[in-house]
Amino acid sequence: MKETITIKNLIKTFKLSKKQMHINRTKDSLKVAVNDISFATYPGEIFGLLGPNGAGKTTTLRCIATLIKPDSGEIIVDGHPWEDDVQIKKKIAFLTNELKLEEQFTPNYLYDYFSSFHEIAEDDVQKRKEMLFKKFGIDQFSEVKIGELSTGMKQKISIVVSLVHNPDIIIFDEPTNGLDVITAKTVTDYLMELRNEGKTIIISTHIMNLVEKICDRVGIIIDGKLSLCDRVENVLKKYPNTDIEGVFFKLYSEVEHNEYI
């Protein structure tokens, strides 16, 4: 099957400032955030990157989204190498909690603004906006300034504006973080709907049962390394009488951890 994202031997390090070295109680000025990770994704699947905070999930996703440059390794997104960043950004939706929207604008304005960067016919923009706004319950707030909306509503608007161009690859970092159960369900249901349409979805999360619930395949990252990468049912078969959380703790206990906090 065609690979939608291919990652080979990805390495990303960060230079630590003296303050950060002190906080991390290390004398090493380099922190290896992602250490030789390789995996691929395919159409019509939800791939879950599971790992504790600081394991390297977000860094991996930011590299794929071309926000940061890998030190070495290869990233190919829908046939485009990492260097072809404009083409990659046309093909993907990328969303993390760190991405915020300008609070003085309305959802309507921002939807049209983000759409304008993609070659979409005006009629299609309006039709898709109507559909997405309705699905996420934004329609009644379309003319309210973002700053005046609740956290959950802001998150839903962020999701919607990241999907204006109906991309084939969707990368969501902690998609349900900070959302109430109802909103979280709307999001996960929609992700499954997109998977059924044949799209590739990568999510990163530290919520174990979310992986079991919606992911087809899972990659467990611990201390920047990919400890496991397989179909969820295969993982559960391989480690009988336990769930994903149990598998995670087993793998975590096997790894010698750095003393980072």
Partner: peptide
Amino acid sequence: ERGTLATLLLLPIK
């Protein structure tokens, strides 16, 4: 400061 810079950098433009 507002966290909107990364959103800007994700636009499919140079």
